[in-house]
Write a protein that binds this DNA or RNA. Structure first.
Length: 154
DNA sequence: GCCAACGTTGGC
DNA sequence: GCCAACGTTGGC
């Protein structure tokens, strides 16, 4: 069992968008960074814990708890010429990009980035490090526990 | 909209 | 394999 923080731009897919989907689950397509891809492809297991994070918006922060709901499989958008995620170098035989499905567990009262920064327990969190841009980062179990038991209120 | 930080690309 | 140029991310 591992724990992850996954960023989504709410203009693209917000926590409410996720909640409105069938099964409250979404294919996490569009990751075009090798490190983030490798986390999904090589390390994620069904049932892993996910913090659903709103990025690049007025109120960045953790917006909900989710779970990994599938193993990684080829990202369909890499083959779709009409998609901005189309990758001419990817083929069906040798796909380059993978994604998992992510399913909502519960929406929470937004935990703002500014609040996360105030807790010494979280000062080593990858997402809080200067210059970090990775859209998927692993969480220490202690960080997961602290956030989900000390900071989350429904 | 600004800009710092980082990843990728491609010429050499 | 170096590295400059370029594109992207994402907080502010």
């Amino acid at each position: 069992m591992r724990y992850w923080l996954m960023k989504s731009e709410p203009g693209d897919c917000s926590i409410d968008d996720l909640a409105a989907l069938p099964n409250q689950a979404v294919a996490w397509y569009g990751v075009r960074n090798y490190q983030a891809r490798n986390f999904m492809r090589d390390q994620m297991q069904v049932g892993d814990g996910v913090l659903f994070y709103h990025s690049n918006c007025a109120e960045p922060g953790i917006a909900g708890i989710a779970r990994v709901a599938s193993h990684a499989y080829p990202d369909a958008k890499q083959f779709d010429k009409s998609s901005k995620y189309f990758d001419p170098k990817a083929t069906q035989e040798t796909p380059r990009w993978f994604n998992v499905d992510v399913q909502l567990v519960k929406k929470i009262a937004l935990l703002p980035l500014a609040e996360l920064r105030q807790h010494p327990e979280l000062e080593r969190m990858r997402t809080l490090q200067r210059g970090n841009r990775l859209s998927i980062t692993p969480l220490d179990p202690a960080e997961w526990k602290f956030i989900t038991t000390q900071l989350v209120h429904d």
